[in-house]
Structures are given as structure tokens and as C-alpha cells.
Amino acid sequence: MTRRKYHFSRENARPFTERDLLTMQLLRPHLIALYREAARRRHEPVRLTPRELDVLRAVANGLSTEDIAGQLVVSTSTVRKHLENTYRKLGVSSRTAALARVFPDPDLP
């Protein structure tokens, strides 16, 4: 494995030069790929059931527990149980953290 280390800094708060900006622009897609790969290695894949994924997709769409229950034709306690199981499997404690773990790259610029 080859490791490379780069350090970008500005002295005296001077703006980056055109050359600096061009270098960073050229490196950007490679750095994003490295970041994604590191994130994938950091978090082992978690196997969620199709229904747990359905619930998370509905959460991602901004639906409340009651709305999700209506959409999936189940009780609200069933939705809560799916969320509890999902949180346990992912090692998180909130809807936001679960979404960030399952859908880590919503829209990279």
C-alpha cells in the first residue's frame, strides 16, 4: 500500500494562488474517491431487511412515523420496531444518524 500525505495551508491568510486552486481542482475527484473508499472501509456493510430499507427511504423522504405506517399499511408500533432494529444494527440512535450511515453521499458538490 502506498501512502501519500499532502498538506495545504495559507500563510498570513493570503488567498490561494491560481496554481494552488488549479492543483486542488485537479485533485478533487481523486480525493473524493479516496474519501468514499475510506468511509466504506470504516463501516462494515450492515444487512438491513427490505422492509427496514423501505422505512428508511420513507424517513429520507421526510415522512412521519404515522405517514410511513399508512404508506406501508402497518401499525405505527411496527414502524417504530423497524426503526429500533435498524438503529441497533447500524449502531446509531436517531433517524438522522441512520440516514447518514445508510445514505452517506446525498449530493456531493
Rank of each mutant, 00 (worst) to 15 (best):
P50F: 01
V73L: 12
I68M: 11
R36M: 13
S64A: 13
A100H: 07
R41W: 02
V74Q: 06
N12M: 07
A69E: 11
I32V: 14
S93A: 09
P45M: 02
S77T: 15
L22T: 13
E84Q: 15
A69M: 02
R80N: 05
E44L: 06
V102L: 08
R95S: 00
E37S: 07
T86D: 04
L108K: 05
K89V: 03
L26A: 10
Y6F: 12
F103C: 04
T96S: 06
L63P: 00
R95G: 00
D20C: 02
E52I: 02
L108Y: 05
D54H: 05
H82P: 01
A33Y: 00
P15V: 14
R95I: 00
E18M: 12
L26F: 09
I32D: 07
V59G: 01
R40D: 03
R57D: 07
R3V: 12
D105N: 13
Y87E: 00
R47A: 12
P109W: 12
K5I: 11
R36F: 08
A60G: 12
L83Q: 14
V59P: 00
P45L: 00
Y87P: 01
L108G: 07
A13E: 12
I32T: 10
R36E: 15
R36T: 03
T49V: 06
E37A: 13
A58Q: 08
L26Q: 14
A39C: 10
Y35L: 10
H43Y: 10
H30R: 12
K81P: 00
L27M: 14
Y87N: 02
G91K: 06
T78Y: 15
L48E: 08
V74M: 10
R42D: 05
A58R: 09
E44G: 09
D67S: 10
E18N: 13
K81A: 11
E52K: 02
T23P: 00
L26S: 06
A97T: 04
P109H: 11
R41A: 05
A39F: 10
V73K: 05
V92A: 03
A38S: 08
V79I: 14
R57T: 04
A60C: 03
E37C: 02
R80M: 03
